[in-house]
Write a protein that binds this DNA or RNA. Structure first.
Lengths: 247, 247
DNA sequence: TTCCTTCATTGATCCGTGTCAATGAAGAGA
DNA sequence: TCTCTTCATTGACACGGATCAATGAAGGAA
């Protein structure tokens, strides 16, 4: 693992970081010996805002976000960047290895991670089915998010992509406000664009349209409020499932 | 589960189908009782070419492809279709449940599947860590394919997408021929288009260009030969990794 | 506070791919 | 074999979002 220019800064000690990982993924009955072995293969990564961590491109990693938020970025030729996924504290990111694109993790806010080589991680997890099961669940959630994202990237208009993105974010980091939500987006317009296969200009224009239609309100660069989540969802290009009667 | 107009046709018996699943995913030492329980939650799906299987949109499924090949399709509003992934015999497809798009599995060739409700499947798998581990591996492979696909859908030109697709297919179903590969694509141009976020016309035009450049040769609708896989890979828009010296 | 850099916004123009339309080839079934 | 349907191919044109360019707002640093 190699860290970028903005790496290193934080406060949290390794034991504190490991405790957060342990609380989220290791069940209470995990034997101490197993816990120690997880600890021995964990590598702490501390990133300032915009700091980035590059990994050995051959070796797949699991990265647990202990503190802050980050993006998993893939690079194609010509410096093109695609944000594969955003991750918040408590989530697990899978960083592919041996792939045809170059992957890295970049901090959206000051961020602390624990990185594990997948092979060793799964070897340990095999001894504790509950851990394996938890990891399996989380990877499936990631796969479903990726599947839903394929639809957006492959078949949706700019407006639908932006609305889908906002709907997803309200579910992950929004706080309820009446019929709607408020949230502070930790990523820039450019990050959103790189996640949705668009440009920052297009994101700005779509935000402007949504603001004018009263679908969203913004304040400063990062605060977004959605007065009525239903109207945002209606613009997301989703399949209208007949059984959406539950209000 | 509900099957479409072209469902039902085949020959293979349920025990034969289950044996293929069992050989691929259940280790030799799996207790008979566990095997029987897997058998009791497995549902056989037999599809003619173009047949499709719809699932309860609330209930996530794991579908093991015993025979043939299939596509996992998501539908958005306005009848738009996105092919999330292609699957060949021996592979495991994750069909999302409770999602904002409607998913189905559609046969590319006559096809036989075993479908399992995820919850019950994982409950059983927890009793056998080796099974859980195998499933986890396969889901991670699917996630990596999805990540690589995000880059294509979000940031690549039509030509790069088609080349990436062909590179991926040579790796999965190609047979080596000198420096290159030959393969019989079971999916139509339209299927490829729906997988790459393009139209069938654009696929045709890109195939025409690649034919003219001598990068590929085609024969009939489905046979594609790639004389030199290197030149195809060069057009895929991949990150040029410095350590690609291994010839 | 004030500066200064980064990020967001808005406008004008261009281009890649979609759309619409017509023709041709493949391959299944009688 | 011949027919008939489906799929692939090719062309003309339109349009959504990219690109290029300029201005303005946020918010961190001193």
């Amino acid at each position: 693992m190699r860290s970028g220019p903005n790496a290193v800064a934080m406060s949290t000690t390794f034991p504190e970081l490991f405790d957060r990982f342990s609380a989220a993924l290791l069940p209470a009955e995990t034997p101490d010996a197993t816990i120690l072995r997880f600890r021995s293969i964990a590598r702490a990564i501390r990133l300032d805002s915009h700091g980035h961590a590059e990994f050995d491109p051959k070796a797949e990693q699991l990265a647990f976000v202990c503190v802050g938020s980050a993006k998993l970025v893939a690079r194609a030729s010509g410096g093109r960047e695609q944000v594969v996924s955003f991750h918040f504290a408590g989530e697990l990111a899978c960083v592919p290895g041996g792939a045809l694109h170059a992957y890295s993790i970049e901090a959206l806010t000051p961020c602390e991670l624990l990185a594990f080589p997948v092979g060793e991680f799964l070897d340990l997890a095999r001894s504790e089915p509950a851990i394996l099961s938890e990891v399996c669940d989380r990877v499936m959630v990631a796969l479903h998010r990726a599947s839903e994202k394929s639809v957006a990237l492959g078949r949706k208009t700019a407006q639908e992509r932006v609305c889908s993105f906002l709907v997803g974010m309200t579910e992950r980091i929004g706080v309820r406000q009446g019929n709607g939500f408020a949230m502070r987006l930790p990523m820039s317009r450019r990050d959103i664009a790189d996640a949705l296969g668009l440009t920052n200009e297009t994101i700005s224009r779509q935000f402007a349209e949504l603001r004018m239609s009263g679908i969203i309100e913004t304040s400063g660069r990062s605060l977004v409020t959605v007065p009525d989540i239903g109207s945002l969802r209606d613009l997301g290009g989703y399949m209208q499932l007949p059984e959406r009667n539950a209000a």
